[in-house]
């Protein structure tokens, strides 16, 4: 049993820490596939990972709708979101501005999330995926990333499943529509905006 009520995840200095977290996220998204250290909140919001809690405390408020992946969707997490962020919780991923996903196994296809419209592509969902490993990836996901924010190209390694490449290809093809992602784990976040191309690396 988790008991986030006694010591819920929060910032000690909300103004400064929210600013620092935002700058890390801005850096991560403008330099995709290069993990950036995130300031982590005090306390716990388990089973929500501290990196995801940091993003929620920085970007979510009463104006945002939040969707939780099945393994995060329990009352303690919903209560934490309602109290700390004031967000509206919704079980329909198509209506969410932010989706918080525990790990790659827990992630539905990218196409179920809001893609934005052709006139307003900014109204698409931002996916925050936890449980990522960048240093010692289990499994063999290694790809070449290119696009805005990346000088020529770079090799990106993490523990995403192979099938993700196909989904991402589809997401990238629908540019300017599509979702953006923050891949989080090990105290870091790596941005993956829809403008980034991922190509499987030849073994």
């Amino acid at each position: 049993m988790s008991c986030p009520v006694t010591h819920p995840a929060h910032w000690n200095n909300p103004v400064r820490q929210a600013q620092q977290t935002f700058r890390s996220l801005l850096r991560a998204l403008s330099r995709p596939c290069r993990p950036v250290p995130l300031p982590l909140p005090e306390g716990t919001a388990a089973p929500l990972a501290p990196e995801l809690a940091a993003i929620a405390l920085t970007l979510c408020d009463q104006d945002t709708t939040v969707w939780l992946s099945p393994s995060l969707n329990e009352e303690s997490v919903r209560r934490w979101f309602r109290f700390q962020c004031g967000s509206t919780m919704d079980d329909d991923p198509g209506r969410a501005d932010f989706a918080f996903i525990a790990d790659p196994e827990d992630m539905p296809p990218l196409s179920v999330f809001s893609q934005g419209s052709a006139e307003y592509p900014d109204r698409s969902a931002t996916l925050c995926l936890g449980g990522m490993m960048f240093s010692q990836p289990q499994g063999s996901f290694s790809c070449t990333a290119s696009g805005p924010g990346i000088r020529r190209s770079l090799v990106f390694q993490c523990n995403l499943p192979e099938r993700f490449l196909l989904q991402w290809e589809e997401n990238h093809q629908s540019f300017p529509q599509g979702v953006d992602m923050f891949l989080c784990g090990e105290g870091m976040a790596s941005g993956l905006p829809r403008s980034t191309t991922l190509k499987a690396q030849e073994a």
Partner: peptide
């Protein structure tokens, strides 16, 4: 900040 992140993505 939410707007800026979307602006960077597109």
């Amino acid at each position: 900040r939410r707007g800026l992140l979307k602006a960077v993505a597109v």
